[in-house]
Amino acid sequence: MKHNSDYIDKVLERNAPSAGGGFSEEGLKRAEALIALYPKKRSALIPLCHLAQGEHGWITEECIEEIAGLLGVSPAEVSGTASFYDMLHLEPVGQYVISVCTNIACMLAGAYELLEAAEEKLGIAAGQTDTDMRFTLEEAECLGACDTAPCLQVNSRFFGPMNSASFDKLITDLASGALAGVVPPHGVLSRVERVFALTAKDTDDAGAIDSKEAGQK
């Protein structure tokens, strides 16, 4: 996949969740550009949480403070909102977050058996992270890929239909780095960035950028 910014390349180089810290200098610029897209600043709260998660693998306390500062709200409002959402992690998680769907369609295709196999393979129960911070296992609600049941996601990328053998192979491939092109570090939601200059608000820029430069894959 071709990415459309050096920033994304830098984020994709991260191969472990960080212990803490705030936004990078470039990340702060991205944050400001994201805020500018919305009529009201606070709307950027969730996108900024994703941005923080893309840099660190989780939403660090420093990032919460910085997001609050950028949006003019209290840190409690940021963490209060973020804690509502399943995808936003306020504590460190593994390099790979594996979410096994067990909802109705996947359950009818053997999802609980898959989850059991996953727990056994990784030596952790659903909801836990292994000791070297490599894998976090989650039991997920319907992920919207029921035609490939039972399905799972690794860092929000889909795999399915799965069984215990293909799960073992998946873990081997993740550990060897064979899937680096498919599965980005945890928290990186989109490897394609919006070209921020493209808005109707800027009278000169709209339409000026060649579509070839505009982040195609």
Binding site: S190, R194, K217
Partner: peptide, 17 residues
């Protein structure tokens, strides 16, 4: 996530077009 990537890329292309 893949949908968001493709839609973002498409949005960039659509602006360019």
């Amino acid at each position: 996530a893949l949908g968001i990537e493709r839609l973002t890329a498409a949005c960039n292309e659509a602006y360019g077009h």
